[in-house]
C-alpha cells in the first residue's frame, strides 16, 4: 500500500518534469476535490456532524420535544452509579467472548474440513448449506428460532426429548436466554467466518506443505506447524471484526428474547436503544454510547498489542 502511494506520487512528479503547465496541475486538484465531494459531504453530515453533536449531547438533557438543557457532568456521574449498565455490560462481555470464541473456532474447523480433498459437488453442497444463514435477515430468522426454541411443543425440545433430554427453557429462563442468543448468533455467522478462513487457508502456498512433507511431517504436524501459524493473520482480522461486530449486536436479542427475562439477555445496544428511543433520555443514551465506543476502541487496540505475540507474518 505504502509503495503504491509513492509510485502514484512519482508518476505525477514525472508528468511535471515533462513540462506540464501549472494549470494542468490545478485542474487535477480541482478534479480531485470534485471526485471526493459526494462522499465527503455525506460523511460530514451523517457521521462527523453526529460525532460532534454527540460530544455536546453528553452534557445535555434532551427528550426531543422540549429544548435541550445543559446539565454539566450529570450524565457522566450517572454512568458511574448505573448498576443496570454494569449487569448489561457483563451480559455483553459474556456474549462477545462466547460468540467470538465459538464463531472463530467453529469457522476455522469448518474451513479446514471443507478445504480437504473431496468432489466439487460435495464441497459446493456443504459450503452452500453452511453459508445460507449468513444471507438471511437476522431479525426475521430470529423469529424462526423463537418458534424452534419454544419450551412447550418447540421443535428443538421435541428433538431433544427423542434422545431423552428434558425440555430446556431456552428463552424463558435467565440462565438460558443469553446462551440462546449466543447460539443463534453462532448459527447465523458461522458460515461467514468459515468463508473468511477458507480464503486464508487457500492463500497458504502449497509448496510449504510439500516441503514439510519431504521433511517427513505427518498430518498433525502439517496442521500444527504449517496451517496454524500461517492462518494467524486471517484469524487476527477475523477476531477483530468478530469482537467489534458482537459488541454492537442488536437484532438477535431484540427479536429473540427482547433482552429478557428481566435483563438476563439485555445487551448494551438494546439498553442504548431503550434509554434513547423508549425513555427519550438522549443525553444519557449518548453517554452510554461513548462508553461502548471507548470499550470497542480499547479492545481493538489490545488486539493489536497482543497480535505481536501470536500473529505470524511471512
Amino acid at each position: 500500500m505504502q509503495t503504491s502511494v509513492s509510485s502514484g506520487m512519482t508518476q505525477t512528479q514525472s508528468t511535471k518534469r515533462r513540462g506540464r503547465s501549472a494549470g494542468l496541475q490545478s485542474r487535477e486538484a480541482l478534479a480531485g476535490y470534485a471526485f471526493i465531494l459526494p462522499a465527503l459531504l455525506t460523511l460530514t453530515i451523517f457521521l462527523i456532524l453526529p460525532i460532534l453533536a454527540s460530544a455536546v449531547l453528553i452534557f445535555m438533557e434532551y427528550d426531543i420535544l422540549s429544548p435541550a438543557k445543559w446539565v454539566g457532568l450529570a450524565n457522566l456521574k450517572r454512568l458511574v452509579s448505573d448498576n443496570r449498565m454494569l449487569l448489561i455490560y457483563r451480559n455483553t462481555l459474556v456474549f462477545v467472548v462466547g460468540a467470538t470464541f465459538l464463531n472463530n473456532i467453529g469457522g476455522l474447523m469448518l474451513a479446514m474440513g471443507v478445504n480437504r480433498a473431496m468432489p466439487g459437488v460435495l464441497r459446493y453442497l456443504l459450503r452452500t448449506a453452511i453459508f445460507f444463514p449468513v444471507l438471511t435477515t437476522t431479525a426475521s430468522l430470529a423469529l424462526v428460532w423463537q418458534f424452534l426454541l419454544t419450551q412447550d411443543r418447540g421443535v428443538i425440545n421435541y428433538l431433544l426429548s427423542q434422545i431423552g433430554v428434558d425440555p430446556v427453557p431456552w428463552l424463558s429462563s435467565s440462565t438460558w436466554a443469553l446462551r440462546s442468543v449466543i447460539l443463534y448468533d453462532v448459527w447465523k455467522s458461522l458460515g461467514f467466518l468459515m468463508v473468511l478462513y477458507l480464503a486464508g487457508l487457500q492463500g497458504i502456498p502449497e509448496s510449504l506443505y510439500e516441503a514439510a512433507r519431504i521433511d517427513g511431517a505427518n498430518r498433525w504436524q502439517l496442521t500444527r506447524y504449517v496451517t496454524l501459524p500461517l492462518i494467524t493473520p486471517t484469524a487476527f482480522f477475523a477476531i477483530v471484526i468478530s469482537l467489534i461486530g458482537a459488541g454492537q449486536v442488536f437484532d438477535n436479542a431484540f427479536v429473540l428474547t427482547g433482552g429478557g427475562p428481566g435483563d438476563a439477555s439485555r445487551l448494551i445496544v438494546l439498553y442504548i436503544y431503550e434509554v434513547g428511543f423508549k425513555r427519550f433520555e438522549m443525553g444519557y443514551a449518548a453517554a452510554l454510547s461513548l462508553t461502548l465506543f471507548a470499550i470497542l476502541i480499547a479492545l481493538t487496540m489490545l488486539q493489536f498489542v497482543m497480535a505481536r505475540r501470536w500473529v505470524h507474518y511471512e
Binding site: A39, L47, F250, I272, L296
Partner: peptide, 26 residues
C-alpha cells in the same frame, strides 16, 4: 488528510452514533 478522515471514520461504528444521527435526521 482527507483520506485520514475517511479511515478514522471507519473506526466509529454506526450504533455508537445512532442517537445523535437520529437527532440530525429529525
Amino acid at each position: 488528510a482527507f483520506f485520514f478522515v475517511f479511515l478514522a471514520s471507519m473506526m466509529v461504528p454506526w450504533t455508537v452514533i445512532m442517537v445523535p444521527t437520529f437527532i440530525v435526521i429529525r
